[in-house]
Computed example of a mutant assay.
Amino acid sequence: MKRTPFKKIALLAGSFIVVTGGSIAANVPKIAEEFPTIPLQVVESLTTIPSLFLIFSVLFSHTIARWIGYKKTVLLGLGIVTVSGLIPVFVHNFWVIFLSRAFFGIGIGLFNSLLVSFIRYFYEGKERATMIGFQSAFEGIGGMTISFLVGQLLKISWQTSFWVYIAALPAFVLFALFVPDIPAEPSGFSGKRGADDARERDTEGKGKGKMRAGTFGYIALLFVVVMFYMSITVRVTPLMTTIGYGDATDGSNILSFIGIGAMAAGFLFGQIFTFIGKYTLPIAFLLLGLSLFAVGQSNSVLVTGLAAALCGFSFRTFIPYLFNKVNSSHTGNANLSTSLLLVGFNLGAALSPYGIALLEKLFRLASIRAIFTTEAAILLGFSAVSFGYHFFVGPRKAIE
């Protein structure tokens, strides 16, 4: 099948809007003023409600795709995102806006995991890992770009700022024009043809249970790591203002450093994975633990910013590693594994404040510095265990 640059761009364009559900957070104060009878917590939920409904729709996206086709399902999701994203521009009814945000999440969930299926079908080996890394990078770029544009358009009005979601329209057009449909049968996702398909189907049937067990371990790991990663978003501004070396603007800038590190990791993931291979996971844990430790000990905006960039880099090395891992294995249900990983990711992000609170209670943490230090210690422990496994258990298994 012809591999044009336009097909790659079209596959990545959808990822540009995947993590933009919370990008309208800057709108919350203005919307709260506009609808004074609506409780503030409900207004704030406009930023989180897409993630909750995304979790629901991502579980059924492959079932719908088998029914109406994979390409049509992606286009349906992009269409829902375009329409629901723009509804607040024209409607001045809070509950209609609230409902549109729910549909926005449903739309994202419909095509999010399917984009990985298309990448798995069209690409193999290093090229597949590179594309999954690029997908992660485009998610970061989209989140930063949309958040910036929201802030600029907010100077006109809060309703005008929702025009940012017109970005879903070119993604729809590009996908419709340049991405061919793919078959729904499991064998169609191997990226190989002929005799390889039969062999992989046989392997898949024999190893299905084993892969699923491993996937659940990945989901639990992802859930914990995402909660820790999100703590820098939730607590870095309070940390800086409490200690006295930064203000709210500095805290906002720190989040941009995270995005820069995340983008760099996404674009470099293919090369990183090729160079360090199975050690990608323990090294990602090591760097993430060191970055959170540096944030917790910092007394400088510059140091915190550099640590935040390392945090984004290491996290966005960890994420595509997991997705590449489950999509490169010939055992288990890769579609289901991808969907469940996305569920774990969004649950970890949504429950991060509660996870931090639980951590504070379990370890009796009395300061924000202690939170970051404890999370760093846990991640460094993950790194040590992972290194130990690859050094001692892995080689022994290979011999057996």
Rank of each mutant, 00 (worst) to 15 (best):
N299D: 13
S329T: 05
S328V: 06
G246E: 03
G296E: 08
I283T: 01
D247P: 03
T249Q: 05
N253H: 11
P282N: 01
G246F: 02
K325F: 12
F293Y: 14
S300G: 10
G251S: 06
S256R: 12
I272R: 03
N327M: 08
I319N: 05
L292Y: 03
G305N: 11
G332Q: 04
S337H: 13
F315D: 11
I272C: 10
A334S: 07
G277A: 07
Q271R: 07
A248V: 12
L286F: 04
L302N: 05
Q271Y: 13
S300F: 15
L310T: 00
T280E: 00
T317A: 08
G246R: 06
F275T: 10
L302Q: 09
L290K: 09
L287K: 00
A294C: 12
F269W: 08
A307L: 06
L336D: 06
M263C: 10
G259A: 14
K278M: 04
M263E: 00
V295N: 08
A265K: 00
F318H: 02
V326Y: 01
F269G: 04
I283W: 05
L336W: 01
N327K: 07
F273Y: 13
I258Y: 10
F285Q: 06
P320S: 08
L306E: 10
T331K: 15
L302G: 11
G251V: 12
L292T: 12
F257P: 05
G246P: 07
L288Q: 08
L302V: 15
S329R: 12
D250S: 12
